[in-house]
């Protein structure tokens, strides 16, 4: 019961702030709503027994990525807001209609697919020599998923160099 209350509260906050992110006119307010949204998603991870991922979410998303967005919003001085003039070629209503259709489809797939299949038997967890969420995630990262982990670090290095090259005035 307590879990249900927590879930519905968090879900309401997550979806509400997500709608605010998308609809707010002021870009700075939008970024601040994005921070709140990420923090509530982190709380949802705690509810899902993933405390390590919750901390990563707060550190990387709410701490790192959003600061990057704020920097860009401050650097980009908007004399005329992008939404000011209307483009007759944009078909916003069709976009909303298609999104609603996709939502209905996804909901139907989720509900029907999950109801039909029998409850999944819990897969036997691999025997790991460590206990605790953080230790087990770290164990997986450094044993079974070592190569993807290194590729991810390479990707971040390439992205860092690429961002510097793109944002630099003259090479």
């Amino acid at each position: 019961m307590a879990q249900a209350i927590a879930f519905y509260t968090l879900a309401a906050f997550i979806l509400g702030f997500a709608v605010l992110v998308v609809t707010t006119k002021d870009t700075v307010h939008s970024v601040l709503f994005l921070v709140l949204d990420f923090l509530f998603v982190a709380a949802l991870y705690v509810l899902l027994n993933a405390p390590f991922l919750a901390v990563i979410q707060v550190l990387v998303y709410a701490g790192g990525i959003v600061v990057l967005y704020l920097f860009v919003v401050m650097l980009v001085n908007l004399k005329r807001p992008p939404e000011a003039h209307r483009d007759p070629h944009r078909l916003t209503k069709i976009g909303f209609g298609l999104s609603a259709a996709v939502l209905v489809e996804l909901g139907a797939i989720v509900v029907s697919g999950y109801m039909k299949t029998s409850p999944v038997v819990a897969a036997a967890t691999e025997t790991m020599p460590v206990t605790g969420n953080t230790e087990q995630v770290g164990w997986l990262l450094y044993t079974s998923y070592l190569i993807p982990f290194e590729i991810a670090s390479m990707l971040l290095l390439v992205a860092m160099i690429g961002a510097i090259v793109l944002a630099k005035r003259e090479l």
Partner: peptide
Amino acid sequence: AAAEAAVGLG
């Protein structure tokens, strides 16, 4: 997502 944000904002 972090890599995408860095390159995209660049």
